[in-house]
Design a protein around this nucleic acid. Sequence first.
DNA 1: TCCTCTTCTCGAACGTTGGTCTAGTAATCG
DNA 2: CGATTACTAGACCAACGTTCGAGAAGAGGA
Lengths: 229, 229
Amino acid sequence: MNESRAGGRGGRSSGVAGEVWLREPRAYRAAPPLTRDRIVAEAVALLDEEGPARLTMRHLAERLGVGSTTLYWHVRTKDDVLDLALDAIFGDVPLPARPGDWADDVRGLITGWYAVMLRHPWAPGLLGRPMLGPNVLARTEFLQAALARGGFTGVDLAAATHGLANYVIGSALTRTAGGPEDVADQHVRAHAEEYPTLAATGHLGEQDWDELFRRGLSGLLAGLTGSRA
Amino acid sequence: MNESRAGGRGGRSSGVAGEVWLREPRAYRAAPPLTRDRIVAEAVALLDEEGPARLTMRHLAERLGVGSTTLYWHVRTKDDVLDLALDAIFGDVPLPARPGDWADDVRGLITGWYAVMLRHPWAPGLLGRPMLGPNVLARTEFLQAALARGGFTGVDLAAATHGLANYVIGSALTRTAGGPEDVADQHVRAHAEEYPTLAATGHLGEQDWDELFRRGLSGLLAGLTGSRA
DNA sequence: TCCTCTTCTCGAACGTTGGTCTAGTAATCG
DNA sequence: CGATTACTAGACCAACGTTCGAGAAGAGGA
């Protein structure tokens, strides 16, 4: 080999410094190159850890150890990242390998959906955009298929699917929307004369929210089943 | 400073040009001074006409004929404007002067709520923030009071209130979220082999959406009533 | 070994945003 | 008439999403 390239003085590691030892071996491809999947995964982690306000392209790139503009080679806009991150977490909603009792499947899917959104509290706030990702569509397909097995057809089927989906979305949104629960509670209590019924209902603990969601879901499911054609 | 008081050339209408004739008489107080209400009303109009993306403090101030910084005398941040605008439109949800049949009142309130949100399609997307405005609280109070009249108590009451509110929120959100309806429809149809049930449901026309909402609401209401303690 | 093509990365910079600071002006009150 | 209050414009700031063009790295061919 050539040792003639004495004085590894090169500003850059290439061209000069033929010494193999001084060059990091394939450092460039050591870490997998940036991929869309890595970006999305890191975005989800960032959202979970630091909240949506901290999700900037620069900060995301920093966490990935790349320049901010590099992201735009893999993704067109920031909204793309948001859309992808949103769909990504819905991949965690468990989907039974084999369809069982239709009502159980529906309940399981909806509660799983709900749980995932609470696990990523930033998600419901991002829901104001079309949800056409594969994970979302697969779950919606499963939901509608289960309802079809339950005897729903035509408009009843569509109404049941949308009704359930809308219920879970609204529930997750209002659950994660409020700041500290005490604030709203105190505010209502402070104006008890204007909102007597609300004030009387009183404070809702951590546990009760899930119970409320469960009851509402049961009611909705029962009502839809009853009004089935 | 400026000794050249000659010529009405002054960049500003004040200080220079002592001639009363050149000054518009009381132009300052001619239009009512900026108030929080005017800001909110203009913000709603702007959102309706140009969409949420165009709601910037500068643009809003421009429409009001004032400087951008002036807004900050009446309002702390842009989020304040958003919160106020959101609550403002809920003032349009009709509230019966005298409570009637509880079920009718509930249906009327929920459908009115839904209609208002569809009339201001930007509203559902802003729902990811605590809703403590007087208009929202008054309607929630009315809803809960009507349900209480219907015999709901305790946890059932809370579940019914939240269930209905969440349903209407989710419905409005998904309704306004999607871009052009055809896009989603075409996308699903293009992957018909993966989403057979969804593809089979087919396209939903303008009319059907309201019908779906109505059916879901009926089902939910029936279910909640049935599971009432 | 050299050249070229494609794939991928990045620094610099642009235009715009929400928000603040400075420095006022018009009306009002004592 | 002087001081106080209500209100406003312009300049300014840090931060944002995004564009642009310059390149580096690897594959393939001759």
